[in-house]
Structures are given as structure tokens and as C-alpha cells.
Design a protein around this nucleic acid. Structure first.
Lengths: 238, 238
DNA sequence: TAGATTGTTAATCGATTAACAATC
DNA sequence: TAGATTGTTAATCGATTAACAATC
């Protein structure tokens, strides 16, 4: 029984493009524009067709002015609203390793409404540490924190082997959306959303590109070096 | 003047699906299969159409056997080959922060042929440290290392403000492929490939989902808590 | 006004799915 | 052989682009 109107249903492609527009007007355009921007201008900077920009904006109810363009303020405001950046999302991070630390320390989430309120780690000796302003807690506190703070979102940064078990536990505890940074696929029940950050997909694209352009090698950096050994000396040797 | 045949041209969608097949047969299937797998089986596990699986495999030259399916070994081998995982890619990481550290410490890259041979950081006091078995070097060594080791790929994990300048410097030094983890868009010349790991795209998807399901909040975890403050005490207070 | 830019319908393009003959 | 599964052509679907009238 939803209480408020839901707004348009957007697919992933549209979401991604809206995000590009949002960044563009936030970073590149405001300097040279006086508060208005044309679909052709956006399209040119993103190497896409201007009709598509207008279609996308129309789909979220942003109306332009002939001969003027679109109001940058309205465009940003409406994207924020539709994508949900005006809400507050509380999330926890499971796995206080380097990756968890990098994520919790990233200050850019706040402008999208995302706040990390707790970090958990299986290693109880880590408890009490503060990373990125957030307390590391023993994993046994997981359920009580989720419950007490009414948290719906979890970020998984544990090793791949531990990820599925952790996802199960999170779902049992009431988590409804999972942002998975562990390099493995998670199986979750209907009604739970998972976004998997596939590092290997990016890697595949790069490897494929490099291979096709013969930018590979067959030899190691030096005679003696093997992966996993510190590459020694630097500027002058060899 | 490329020296070897290039193999099929694959678009991003196909690349991504091939990667899914590759993971699937590496992780889930070998246990219950005897070396063969049908397109219908793969399709079912990935919630897709079996015709598409056969099309994709045909596009990389993997032939199946009627009534039997596809050889798992051949399938994996051919995907490895086409995507370029049998080559060796040497890469450097620029930015030895937590994210750079997480990436260099990830042992999963080797199976795709990617080896990080050096880490650089603008903070010269970091030089000499070893992270994930790789030496941290002063940023001034950048050009000489790239040159001496004939490196074509760079992973950027510096703060957003520094990313474009670093990309320019990398391109000048001869880098041809950039994996960008800084939350900003990079402009590079023709002929340089950039893969941008948009953390905000994933965030947009999650935020949109949570909003549409009313899984947001309007209040902070506690009266006094504000983002950036350690959330204090844990199990029992409140 | 004239002309630039939006908004929208129709056409195109490309990717996915359906149908089914070929095969072992 | 009969039947399961591949391989491939044709049909469908959805997303993008072209065309152009509406608007300020």
C-alpha cells in the first residue's frame, strides 16, 4: 500500500542517461551557460542524439522552452526528485576491509542522500575503530542495528566466499536492497534488489580492447619479477 | 599494422553476457555437469532466452553438439581466448589510497591476465611502502616506469579533482587504456580507451528502487547523530 | 517577424525471440 | 529409430533517429 505517487517507470538505460545529464550540468555546463541549456548542447557533449535527450527529459516531465532550451535548475531538481536523491537512505557496510573503508570514506554519497551509519566486520578485534567517521562494529550487532535504525540497504564488501552467506543473513534481518562489491553472483529471494558491481565486466572490456590493439606483452617486467613480488628499485636499474 | 587475426568484433552487450557465461561455468555448473552444458541450462540460470546463448556462442565460434550441448572446457577456453584472458596485461595504479590498495590487493585479476606492476602516489612519503605485493613509488617515476616496462594500461584511483590532469599525463606518457575509478568523466584523445566505473550509476539504480518502494526515511539514526559523526554505542542505548 | 529550438509522430535500426529444419 | 538439442532464418520487439509541425 504505497502512500505517494510513484512517478514514471524508468528503465536502466534511461536511468543511466539521466545520471549523465545530471553530472554534466553539475560539472561542465554551469560555467558557460546562463541557467539554460539546449538538448543539442547536452547531446553534443555526450556524443548522442539530441532527440533522445528531449525524449528522456520529457519522460520525467521536464518541459523546455522553444528557442531557449531547458532550465538547468529545473532539470537538476527534477532528476534529483525522480531518481530519489532528495530522500535519505541509511545503509550499512558489511566488511571493513580496504574496499569497505574506501566506500565509507567517500564523501560524495551524501549528495545522493546515502548515509552509511555502521560498518561491520567479522574480525571482532576491529570493533571500535572508526573509518570515515563511522564506527566499526562486531558482526553480531548486525541484526540489532538493522532493526533499531530501520535500515533497508546494505553494501557488501566481504570476500567472495563469504558473500552469499552474508546476503542470506542480511535478507533475514530485513534488508531489501543490496549493493554487492564482492566478485560473485548472489541469489536472493523475490522482492530483494541486488546491484552487482561486476569489476570483471570492466576488465573484460579493457582486456578485449588491449588485445585487439596488440597492446599486450608476453614477458614480465623484469627477468626475476613475478606477480606478487614487489617490483624492486625504480628509476635506474635494468 | 596488426600482426595477428583479430577475431570477431563484439559489442558491449555480448562481452558482458560472455563474461556471465564464463563465470557461470566456472562457479556453478562444473559440479553437476559432466563436461557438457546445454544452452537451455545456461539460459535458465541467467534468466534469459536460450536462443541468445546459442547466438552468442556461435559468434565466437563455439559449436555445440545436438542432443549433448556445449563442451564446458571449449566454452571456457574460447571465451578466455576471445576476450583476451590468455594475454598478459601490465598495468599501473595511480593513487595509493584505500581504493588503490583494495584493487592492487585483489588477487582475482591474475586469472584474467592483468598484473599490476607499480603503484604511484603524489604523497612522496608513501614511496617505499608495499601494498598487495607492489611497490609504491613517487609520482615522478611515472614516465620512466611506463616507458621502461612498456605499459599500456593505467588504473586511476586519485581524487576526482586530480583525475583529469593525471589522465593527460598518462596519455602523454603513452598509456592507451584507462580504467577510471575517480568519480568524474575524463576527456581523452581519439585512440585512447577509457572505461569509467561509475559508482553513481549503481547508486542511482538503488536509490530509485528504494524510493519507489518507500524504503526511505526522513529521520537520522538518532537525535544527535549527523553524517560524519561516529554512530556511538551500539547494541543497547536508544 | 523570422528563426531557433522544442515536442511528437513516423521511420529506422539493432537486438531479442520465435519457429523450425538439421543433426546426432 | 525417436527425440533432444543445435543452428539459422524470419518475426517481433524496443530503442534510437529522422522528419517536421508547434511554439515562443
Amino acid at each position: 500500500m504505497p502512500r505517494k505517487p510513484k512517478g514514471p517507470v524508468l528503465n536502466q538505460l534511461v536511468l543511466e542517461r539521466l545520471m549523465h545529464y545530471f553530472h554534466l550540468v553539475g560539472e561542465q555546463i554551469p560555467d558557460n551557460a546562463n541557467g539554460w541549456v539546449s538538448s543539442a548542447h547536452i547531446a553534443q557533449l555526450l556524443a548522442m542524439d539530441d532527440t533522445l535527450v528531449r525524449k528522456d527529459l520529457a519522460s520525467i516531465g521536464v518541459r523546455g522552452r522553444p528557442r531557449v532550451g531547458f532550465s538547468i535548475a529545473e532539470l537538476k531538481g527534477r532528476i534529483r526528485e525522480v531518481l530519489g536523491f532528495n530522500e535519505i537512505y541509511k545503509a550499512i557496510i558489511v566488511g571493513a576491509g580496504r574496499l569497505g573503508g574506501a566506500i565509507v570514506s567517500y564523501s560524495g554519497f551524501a549528495k545522493y542522500g546515502l548515509y552509511v551509519v555502521a560498518l561491520f566486520d567479522a574480525d571482532t578485534s576491529r570493533a571500535g575503530e572508526v573509518m570515515g567517521g563511522v564506527l566499526v562494529q562486531p558482526i553480531d550487532n548486525l541484526e540489532s542495528v538493522i532493526n533499531r535504525h530501520d535500515i533497508h540497504m546494505a553494501i557488501i564488501t566481504v570476500p567472495a566466499e563469504a558473500a552469499q552467506a552474508m546476503a542470506d543473513r542480511l535478507v533475514d534481518a530485513g534488508i531489501r536492497a543490496i549493493w554487492n562489491f564482492a566478485p560473485t553472483s548472489l541469489v536472493v529471494p523475490q522482492g530483494v534488489f541486488v546491484r552487482h558491481e561486476h569489476i570483471s565486466v570492466g576488465l573484460a572490456e579493457l582486456a578485449y580492447y588491449l588485445k585487439r590493439n596488440n597492446l599486450t606483452t608476453t614477458d614480465w617486467p623484469s627477468e626475476s619479477w613475478r606477480p606478487g613480488q614487489p617490483l624492486e628499485s625504480t628509476a635506474e636499474e635494468g
